[in-house]
Simulated scan of single mutants.
Amino acid sequence: MKQLPAEWKSERIIISDVEEYEIPEIQSICNTSRYLQQWDGREHDPDYVKKCVEEGNLPPGGKLQNYRIQSIRTTEENRIMGLLSMYHGYPSEDSVYLEFLYIQSDIQKQGYGQEMIQALSFHLSSLGYREIRINVALKNWPALRFWIKSGFNQISGIYGDSEHSDTTFANTELIKTL
C-alpha cells in the first residue's frame, strides 16, 4: 500500500513524521485543543501524541505500518503549528481516514488548514486513493464548516447518542471524493 512520504510540502507548510524529540512540543499544541471535549465528550489524554507515535490510533484490525502522525510547520519560520494523524487503507484499500487534524487556535483562519487539505488531497489522489474520511462532532460547528468548505460533502452516517443534551454526543462521518 502506497503512503504519503515522511515529509511533504505545500506553498506555506511542511508536513513531516513526528520525531521523538518533538513529542513534548506537539503534545503541548495538542493540549490547546482541550476545548473540543465540550463537543465530542472524549477525555483529554496528556500522552496522546506519545501513544500515537508508539502504538498508533488504529481502527479495528488496523496495522501500525498503515498509521502516520505528522507535524505541521510553517515553511517561513519552521514553527510547529499543528498535527495530522491518519490511517491509510480504512475502511477500504482506496480510503484514507483522517484520525485528527489540529492547527493551533492562534494560527487558525489564515488559510493553512485549507492549504493543507488541498495538498493532502493532491498527494493522496496521486497515490491512487479515491476518498478521505473524517469523523466530526456534530456540536463542533466550526469544524463542520471547515470540512464542508474543504470538499467533505458526503455523509456516510451519524453515530453516538440519539438525544441532544449538554451531556450527550454524536458524530458524523464526512467523505471527500478525490
Rank of each mutant, 00 (worst) to 15 (best):
T75M: 08
I23A: 02
G41N: 08
E93P: 07
P91S: 06
P59D: 01
I23S: 05
L36T: 09
C52Y: 07
E93L: 09
N57Y: 14
N66R: 08
S95T: 14
L83T: 08
L84Q: 06
Q27T: 00
E22Y: 05
R42P: 04
H44Q: 06
Q37C: 04
T32P: 06
G62Q: 08
L84D: 10
Y97T: 03
H88R: 12
V96N: 04
R79V: 10
I23L: 12
V53M: 11
Y35H: 14
N66M: 09
E76R: 13
Y21E: 15
E43N: 09
N57K: 11
N57C: 10
I80G: 00
N78I: 07
L36Y: 03
T32E: 15
R68C: 15
G89D: 05
Y90V: 03
D40M: 00
I29D: 01
P24D: 00
I80K: 12
G56C: 01
T74W: 14
S85I: 07
P46F: 00
R34P: 02
Y67G: 07
K50T: 00
T74R: 15
R73M: 12
H44M: 06
G41F: 14
V49P: 08
D94P: 00
G61I: 11
P59W: 04
Y21C: 08
Y90R: 01
Q37M: 05
R34C: 04
I29H: 05
Q37R: 11
